[in-house]
């Protein structure tokens, strides 16, 4: 780690691991439920029935920002491998935050779409 990113790097490191642990748990459950069941079938009704439960809505509401943070912070690590200058680093970080927040908002709208469809 270089000194330019400072304290942010430690938080990035910690949240990457915390979100990673949640995503590991989520993905095991998600893939088991959607792909490894005997009566395997996915359509609009299957999704809306699941999102009829508050527990699942909360679960997906945590999942959306968690996966976006993990993804953008992960790509940031790759950008960081190229030792960007301070200006570039700030611009890339700002872009990733804007994209992450915008896609999170879109994700919440999609969850609401499925919840309303039930």
């Amino acid at each position: 780690m270089n000194g330019k990113t400072g304290k942010g790097s430690a938080y990035g490191w910690l949240f990457q691991r915390i979100t990673g642990l949640f995503l590991a748990f989520f993905l095991i459950l998600h893939t088991q439920m959607l792909h490894f069941t005997k009566d395997w079938k996915i359509d609009f009704n299957v999704v809306t029935q699941r999102l009829d439960s508050t527990g699942w809505v909360i679960f997906y509401a945590i999942f959306v920002p968690a996966v976006l943070f993990h993804a953008f912070n992960g790509v940031w690590q790759v950008v960081h491998d190229y030792r960007p200058g301070l200006g570039t680093a700030k611009a890339v970080k700002a872009l990733f935050w804007v994209l992450g927040l915008a896609i999170s908002a879109w994700g919440y709208y999609l969850i609401a779409t499925f919840s309303k469809g039930a």
Partner: peptide, 12 residues
């Protein structure tokens, strides 16, 4: 997943 905006038939 964004196709769900178009309703059940579009998503399916």
């Amino acid at each position: 997943l964004s196709s769900s905006v178009g309703g059940a038939s579009t998503f399916n």
